[in-house]
């Protein structure tokens, strides 16, 4: 897998979530994702950025243009230094929430992308990586 381009967006405030969404929109438009695919990726990014902000006490989003065996895609990495998630399996279930959302953030975002992985260590933080292929 090759990384062709990379950018970073801090997530410190509510307006950073808006900025992160705009960045994902811009990149996915450049890659000529279909409108539905764009919308799915931006929505997933919005969920995860808000998660990093609300539960992880802020963090950052890394956006990467990647290619693998001739297909290209966007990889988004959300990292925070928050309390971490003790039970990831439970956190991925619909309806699970500790914050103010509807509890669809993690599980919902997973359904909106092609690849989803999550690493979390209690007390250190959480890292969520998503990929949507073109």
């Amino acid at each position: 897998m090759n990384v062709l381009k990379r950018d970073e967006q801090p997530l410190k405030s509510s307006s950073d979530v808006v900025a992160a969404r705009q960045k994902v929109r811009q990149w996915s438009t450049e890659l000529r994702f279909s409108l539905v695919d764009q919308t799915k990726l931006i929505t997933a990014a919005s969920e995860l950025a808000r998660n990093a902000l609300d539960h992880g006490k802020g963090g950052a989003m890394t956006i990467e243009l990647i290619s693998n065996h001739g297909k290209s895609g966007l990889r988004l990495i959300f990292e925070d230094q928050g309390p971490g998630i003790p039970d990831i399996e439970q956190a991925l279930k619909d309806g699970f929430t500790t914050g103010s959302g509807m509890g669809l953030g993690l599980g919902g975002s997973k359904r909106l992308v092609n690849e989803f992985s999550i690493e979390s260590e209690v007390g250190k933080g959480t890292k969520v990586t998503i990929i949507r292929w073109k």
Partner: peptide
């Protein structure tokens, strides 16, 4: 509501 938004919202589980 736009079609793409509706499709995404359903996939999201809402």
């Amino acid at each position: 509501m736009q079609p793409a938004v509706a499709i995404t919202l359903v996939e999201l589980g809402m």
